[in-house]
């Protein structure tokens, strides 16, 4: 694998399971056992009802582009070859929103409300990112 220069996510204690799932090409979210709400980012308590009881579940990976911006300005040399690239706020079917890239489509063709599905990008031997592509 060629050298990967971009930032690699640094998990915190509460997000370790999430990144382990992504490494195995699964999007895992916590679902509250009491009120059934899914949540993101990961947390030991439910932000809706404060219950501490939850189950980690794989989710569909389907959702829509809630809104997005297209980077034309370079902030980090590692992204030079990617300009212009899309950073979107993806709203999953299960409710939570995640920041990610919208890939496999020209930035000009992305729109708010566009159906997308998750795709996994193995960036190094040890790290994987979740990204979203137009729903197929």
């Amino acid at each position: 694998m060629t050298t990967y220069n971009k930032p690699i996510p640094v998990p915190s204690p509460s997000t370790e399971f999430f990144w382990t799932g992504v490494k195995e090409h699964q999007l895992l979210l916590q679902q509250c056992d009491k009120c059934s709400a899914y949540r993101f980012p990961p947390s030991p308590i439910c932000p809706e009802c404060l219950s501490s009881d939850y189950t980690v579940k794989p989710v569909s990976g389907k959702g829509t582009v809630f809104t997005f911006g297209v980077y034309h300005r370079l902030y980090s040399p590692a992204f030079e070859g990617d300009l212009p690239y899309t950073v979107g706020m993806i709203e999953l079917e299960e409710g939570p929103r995640l920041v990610s890239n919208v890939v496999g489509i020209a930035p000009d063709d992305v729109y708010c409300g566009m159906p997308v599905e998750v795709t996994f990008d193995d960036i190094t031997d040890d790290a994987t990112l979740y990204k979203f592509k137009p729903a197929g």
Partner: peptide
């Protein structure tokens, strides 16, 4: 260090662009 920079999400303008 997670949920942002790995996707090239840097700087303040992006949130106002969204």
């Amino acid at each position: 260090r997670e949920f942002g920079p790995e996707f090239g999400m840097f700087g303040a303008p992006v949130n106002y662009a969204l």
